[in-house]
Every structure is written in C-alpha cells, then in structure tokens.
C-alpha cells in the first residue's frame, strides 16, 4: 500500500492554502504533519478526502488518482478520516454513528466486534446519543467510526485536542495497534511530545509546502527544525 501526495495546490474559495505540498507514506507507517496554525495541515487532510477542490497536483492511492474521484467515492477506496473537533453526528446514537462507518464499505458485525474490542466502553453506550458522551469517549467514537471503514489509511486531525492524559494514551495505543495491522496513519498533532512518540517520520509544513522530513530520533538529537517550524522545543531542553 502506498499513498502519494504529489504537489497539491488548493484552498478555500480564493484563499490558497496548499502550494505544491508533497509527501508519501507506506502501509504500517505513521507520518506526523507538524507546522504552525494556518500552515495547511488540516487542509492537506481535507484535500486527500476530496473535501476541497485542488487547482493542481494529485493524490494517488496504489496508483489510483483519488483527486479525480467525487468526494464520496474516496472513503470507499479505504481512507478514513477523523476530523478536527471529531464531527460526530452528535444527535445520532453511538450505534448509528458506527453503522454509518460500517456502511461506507459494506462491512458488518465482524468489523464492528473487532472495533468494539478496541473500545469496550462504547459497547455499553451503543444506544446513547453520541453528543452526550464525555470528550474522551467522543474521541474514541470518532476513531471507532473511522475504523469501521476498515481503512488502509487513517487520517487523524488533532485527536488529543481537549483530552485528559489517560484518553490521550488510549489514542496513542490505538495508533500503535493499527500500525501493527498495517494501517498507515497521517497524524496532525500540536503536542510535539505526542507526535514524536507516535510517528515514524515527521514532515514539517510551512505556507502550504513540505519543508523538511525527519525521524523522531533525529529530532530528539537536534530539535532545531521544531524551533524553526513549530516554534516550540522539547520539554526540559
């Protein structure tokens, strides 16, 4: 499995955000996108999902040009999205949210059981309206809903936002578990420490372009790119 983002450019209306962004990732790999607010991280994920129109460039999944497909066909090719702020169907129940995930690629009970095994707390709350869950449970549901797609590639946009440490740890565990199953993950994350512990590679985005890619080990040895592109250092340094 290979996802290749080739020099994509685009944005919202007349505002251009992405200016020739490129990166790629393979199955089982976790790529973290880091950059300042407005650099284009979330927009890059939306571009992969076909939610914004590209002026130029391509998104290729195993050679298929996703950017030529209508937005609703892209998840059917095996890409699942956990948007920023979770975007649950908050008036629907937990079960209905998961069913919508399952329906994306016609998966059934077997997939649901496997997903609920990862998030046992959701099984007790299937009939509950999802907007009434706690923040951590909502994040788990958003990820569970995405996993019901049985994705080859998972896009996670700031999954740790507003979560308690225990819930952040659960998210991290899930990313590791998926990696072991060969799922590729693109993680947009503000917490540098979390990003470094989850990622295989980190790509720094600035003004809609990928400036530099490094491994967490290299960044721990030399955090200069973190200072330069994100404006933060590692704790205790």
């Amino acid at each position: 499995m290979m996802l290749r983002v080739e020099a994509i450019a685009g944005g919202y209306g007349n505002v251009q955000v992405l200016r020739g962004l490129s990166f790629d990732l393979a199955g089982g790999e976790v790529l973290c996108l880091l950059g300042r607010n407005g650099a284009g991280k979330t927009t890059a994920l939306k571009a992969i999902m076909g939610l914004i129109r590209l002026h130029s460039g391509k998104v290729l999944l195993d050679g298929t040009d996703l950017s030529a497909l209508p937005a609703h066909e892209i998840p059917k090719r095996g890409i699942a999205y956990v948007p920023q702020g979770r975007r649950l169907f908050s008036e629907l129940t937990v079960e209905e949210n998961l069913t919508l995930g399952l329906m994306t690629r016609n998966h059934g009970q077997e997939t649901l059981d496997r997903v609920l095994a990862l998030f046992p707390v959701l099984r007790e709350r299937l009939k509950q309206v999802s907007g009434t869950l706690s923040g951590g449970e909502q994040e788990m549901l958003a990820i569970a809903r995405a996993l019901c797609v049985e994705p080859k590639v998972l896009l996670l946009d700031e999954p740790s936002e507003g979560l308690m440490p225990a819930a952040v740890a659960a998210v991290l565990d899930t990313v590791h578990a998926l990696k072991a199953q060969g799922v590729a993950t693109i993680l947009v994350e503000q917490r540098v420490e979390l990003a470094l512990s989850a990622a295989d590679r980190v790509t720094f985005i600035e003004n809609g372009v990928a400036r530099e890619t490094a491994t967490p080990a290299a960044l721990r040895a030399d955090p200069a790119p973190l200072h330069h592109y994100v404006g933060v250092g590692l704790h205790g340094r």
């Binding site: 999902m49 939610l51 209508p70 169907f89 995930g101």
Partner: peptide, 9 residues
C-alpha cells in the same frame, strides 16, 4: 461534509 467522508453521495 462528514457524511461525504463516510461515502454518502
């Protein structure tokens, strides 16, 4: 938008 991300036309 989220509906679209789950394959709904």
């Amino acid at each position: 938008e989220t509906a679209q991300s789950f394959g709904i036309p």
